[in-house]
């Protein structure tokens, strides 16, 4: 009896030790795979990365449904979490189909079916390398602005002084609030290496924190006791309504039409 008990305990300990060793290696492998996730751009409607990693069953039905073959399934050794769907905008961007065909086939809910408006998708965030952007260098380009499906919101073009030239530069600016991360801009960028790229917002996006108040903005104005400022009774826009005829400025002043 004593010998059998001893044998049983030893066998169990051996099995458990083997399982523990295997478990260490195994969990290291899984964690390493999961850590690559920050590089992957996910299909529209993808849950936050931790939930996505847990819920994606890697069946590829989203990739099958994509009419542009945008979505790829990561192979082993591709520096993306094995088997998960991703896309590379410089090769094939997301064309933002209005009916979002990739989301309904997802059987697990890793792609949230609550996404009905493709403009609300947040696959990534476009960032501009101002040192290599043609527009920021003073040339006329603005290709990213033209191809942007959320034109005028996700990317705007602003004027900017052009050093000693009399003409202004027209520089593109990305607004994270509206950028879906579709990557049409990255694909269209004419530079040798794209000067505008879509990346996981976590890699580039800062956060100022709750304690800052931008007092010069109307919505951020605060009073002495740190309460919200009272809304002005008369909107400022009305007060400075232009009295000139539309289209009049310093260049055509004084000309009699």
């Amino acid at each position: 009896m004593e010998a059998r008990r001893r044998e049983f305990l030893l066998k169990t300990a051996q099995g458990a030790a083997l399982a523990a060793c295997g478990g260490f290696i195994w969990s290291h492998l899984v964690r390493q795979e999961a850590s690559a996730a920050v590089l992957a751009l996910r299909p529209p409607g993808a849950l936050p990365e931790n939930d996505f990693a847990a819920q994606c069953i890697k069946c590829g039905q989203c990739a099958n449904a994509c009419p542009y073959d945008t979505l790829k399934m990561a192979t082993a050794g591709s520096n993306m979490p094995i088997g998960t769907p991703y896309f590379e905008p410089r090769k094939v961007p997301c064309y933002m189909c209005q009916d979002i065909p990739c989301v309904p086939p997802c059987p697990t809910g890793a792609l949230a079916k609550s996404l009905k408006d493709i403009n609300k998708a947040r696959m990534g965030l476009a960032v501009i390398d101002e040192e290599n952007c043609l527009s920021w260098l003073g040339l006329r380009c603005e290709v990213c602005y033209r191809v942007c499906p959320v034109k005028g919101k996700a990317i705007t073009v602003e004027t900017h002084p052009r050093q000693i030239s009399k003409h202004a530069m027209f520089v593109p600016l990305v607004h994270a609030e509206h950028c879906t991360g579709c990557g049409l801009c990255e694909q269209a960028c004419p530079t040798q290496e794209a000067a505008i790229r879509v990346v996981n917002p976590k890699l580039v996006q800062g956060k100022i924190g709750e304690h800052y108040r931008l007092g010069w903005k109307r919505e951020d104005q605060i009073t002495q006791d740190f309460g919200a400022a009272p809304t002005p009774t008369e909107p400022a826009d009305q007060a400075v309504a232009p009295k000139k005829a539309p289209g009049m400025d310093t260049l055509n002043q004084g000309i009699d039409f």
Binding site: W26, S27, L29, V30, E33, A34, N50, A53, I82
Partner: peptide
């Protein structure tokens, strides 16, 4: 423990 399907991932 890891929060992802451990065998399915590898």
């Amino acid at each position: 423990l890891l929060g992802v399907a451990a065998f399915e991932w590898v």
